[in-house]
Lab assay of single mutants.
Amino acid sequence: RLHIEVEGTELMKKLVEEAKRRNLNVRAKVENGKWIIEID
């Protein structure tokens, strides 16, 4: 499991799109103003 903290929506969208393209499980949520992304 990969755990990433990202500031900025554009970067988050790119990460999520790339993960979906590779058929990975992606969860994204906002915590303290940062995107928290978990990829399995």
Rank of each mutant, 00 (worst) to 15 (best):
1 R>Q: 11
1 R>M: 13
1 R>D: 08
1 R>F: 14
1 R>T: 13
1 R>W: 14
1 R>S: 12
1 R>Y: 13
1 R>N: 10
1 R>E: 09
1 R>H: 14
1 R>I: 14
2 L>M: 09
2 L>A: 07
2 L>W: 09
2 L>Q: 10
2 L>E: 07
2 L>K: 09
2 L>R: 10
2 L>H: 10
3 H>R: 15
3 H>V: 15
3 H>Y: 14
3 H>G: 08
3 H>E: 12
3 H>M: 14
4 I>E: 05
4 I>G: 04
4 I>M: 09
4 I>P: 04
4 I>W: 11
4 I>N: 04
4 I>R: 05
4 I>L: 11
4 I>S: 05
4 I>H: 06
5 E>D: 09
5 E>H: 09
5 E>L: 10
5 E>N: 07
5 E>V: 15
5 E>F: 10
5 E>M: 11
5 E>A: 08
5 E>Y: 10
5 E>G: 05
5 E>R: 07
5 E>W: 12
6 V>K: 03
6 V>R: 02
6 V>S: 04
6 V>N: 05
6 V>P: 04
6 V>I: 10
6 V>D: 04
6 V>T: 07
7 E>V: 13
7 E>T: 12
7 E>W: 14
7 E>P: 07
7 E>S: 12
7 E>Q: 12
7 E>Y: 13
8 G>P: 05
8 G>D: 15
8 G>F: 14
8 G>E: 13
8 G>S: 15
8 G>A: 12
8 G>T: 15
8 G>L: 14
8 G>M: 14
8 G>W: 14
9 T>L: 14
9 T>P: 09
9 T>R: 09
9 T>Y: 15
9 T>N: 11
9 T>M: 13
9 T>H: 13
9 T>C: 15
10 E>P: 04
10 E>K: 08
10 E>R: 05
10 E>Y: 01
10 E>A: 06
10 E>G: 07
10 E>F: 02
11 L>I: 11
11 L>R: 09
11 L>M: 13
11 L>G: 06
11 L>K: 08
11 L>N: 12
11 L>F: 09
11 L>V: 10
11 L>W: 08
12 M>A: 11
12 M>T: 03
12 M>Y: 05
12 M>D: 02
12 M>N: 01
12 M>F: 06
12 M>R: 01
12 M>W: 05
12 M>K: 02
12 M>V: 10
13 K>F: 06
13 K>N: 11
13 K>D: 05
13 K>L: 14
13 K>Y: 05
13 K>Q: 14
13 K>G: 05
13 K>E: 13
13 K>V: 11
13 K>R: 14
13 K>I: 13
14 K>G: 05
14 K>S: 11
14 K>Y: 09
14 K>W: 13
14 K>E: 10
14 K>H: 10
14 K>T: 08
15 L>Q: 01
15 L>A: 03
15 L>W: 06
15 L>R: 00
15 L>V: 11
15 L>N: 00
16 V>I: 12
16 V>R: 02
16 V>Q: 03
16 V>E: 05
16 V>S: 03
16 V>D: 01
16 V>C: 12
17 E>Q: 08
17 E>K: 08
17 E>P: 00
17 E>A: 12
17 E>M: 08
17 E>D: 12
17 E>H: 06
17 E>G: 05
17 E>W: 04
17 E>S: 06
17 E>I: 09
18 E>N: 08
18 E>Q: 10
18 E>K: 07
18 E>T: 05
18 E>Y: 08
18 E>S: 08
18 E>W: 15
18 E>L: 14
19 A>T: 03
19 A>F: 12
19 A>E: 01
19 A>M: 13
19 A>P: 00
19 A>Q: 02
19 A>I: 10
19 A>H: 02
20 K>D: 03
20 K>A: 08
20 K>W: 04
20 K>P: 00
20 K>N: 08
20 K>I: 14
20 K>H: 11
20 K>M: 14
20 K>G: 05
20 K>R: 14
21 R>E: 08
21 R>T: 08
21 R>W: 02
21 R>H: 08
21 R>K: 13
21 R>P: 00
22 R>W: 03
22 R>N: 13
22 R>F: 04
22 R>Y: 06
22 R>T: 04
22 R>P: 02
22 R>K: 12
22 R>H: 15
22 R>M: 12
22 R>D: 06
22 R>L: 14
23 N>F: 06
23 N>G: 15
23 N>A: 03
23 N>R: 06
23 N>K: 07
23 N>I: 04
23 N>T: 01
24 L>T: 02
24 L>R: 05
24 L>G: 04
24 L>H: 06
24 L>P: 02
24 L>K: 04
24 L>A: 05
25 N>K: 10
25 N>V: 14
25 N>R: 12
25 N>S: 08
25 N>M: 06
25 N>A: 11
25 N>W: 01
25 N>Q: 12
25 N>F: 02
25 N>Y: 02
26 V>L: 04
26 V>E: 02
26 V>S: 01
26 V>N: 00
26 V>P: 08
26 V>H: 00
26 V>Y: 03
26 V>R: 00
26 V>F: 04
26 V>G: 01
27 R>Y: 08
27 R>E: 10
27 R>G: 04
27 R>K: 13
27 R>A: 11
27 R>D: 07
27 R>N: 13
27 R>V: 14
27 R>T: 15
27 R>I: 15
28 A>Y: 10
28 A>L: 14
28 A>I: 15
28 A>D: 02
28 A>Q: 04
28 A>F: 10
28 A>K: 02
28 A>T: 13
28 A>S: 06
28 A>N: 03
28 A>R: 01
28 A>M: 13
28 A>G: 03
28 A>E: 03
29 K>N: 08
29 K>R: 15
29 K>P: 00
29 K>C: 12
29 K>F: 15
29 K>G: 06
29 K>E: 05
29 K>Y: 15
30 V>M: 15
30 V>Q: 15
30 V>F: 15
30 V>P: 07
30 V>A: 11
30 V>E: 15
30 V>I: 14
31 E>D: 07
31 E>G: 03
31 E>P: 00
31 E>H: 09
31 E>K: 07
31 E>N: 06
31 E>I: 14
31 E>A: 10
31 E>M: 08
32 N>F: 02
32 N>K: 05
32 N>T: 01
32 N>R: 01
32 N>P: 00
32 N>S: 03
32 N>D: 12
32 N>M: 01
32 N>H: 04
32 N>G: 08
32 N>Y: 03
32 N>Q: 02
33 G>Q: 03
33 G>K: 03
33 G>T: 01
33 G>N: 09
33 G>V: 00
33 G>M: 02
33 G>W: 02
33 G>S: 02
33 G>E: 08
33 G>D: 07
34 K>P: 00
34 K>V: 08
34 K>N: 07
34 K>M: 11
34 K>W: 12
34 K>S: 07
34 K>I: 13
34 K>Q: 10
35 W>E: 02
35 W>I: 12
35 W>P: 02
35 W>L: 12
35 W>H: 04
35 W>Q: 03
35 W>K: 02
35 W>T: 05
35 W>Y: 07
35 W>G: 02
35 W>F: 07
35 W>M: 08
35 W>N: 03
35 W>V: 08
36 I>Y: 07
36 I>P: 01
36 I>F: 04
36 I>L: 06
36 I>Q: 03
36 I>D: 03
36 I>V: 13
36 I>E: 06
36 I>H: 04
36 I>K: 00
37 I>S: 01
37 I>V: 11
37 I>K: 00
37 I>N: 02
37 I>W: 02
37 I>D: 01
37 I>Y: 01
38 E>G: 00
38 E>F: 09
38 E>A: 04
38 E>W: 11
38 E>V: 12
38 E>D: 11
38 E>Y: 10
39 I>Q: 01
39 I>H: 00
39 I>S: 02
39 I>D: 01
39 I>R: 00
39 I>K: 00
39 I>L: 07
39 I>W: 07
39 I>F: 07
39 I>T: 02
39 I>M: 06
40 D>I: 14
40 D>S: 14
40 D>R: 05
40 D>L: 14
40 D>M: 11
40 D>H: 07
40 D>K: 05
40 D>F: 15
40 D>E: 13
40 D>Q: 10
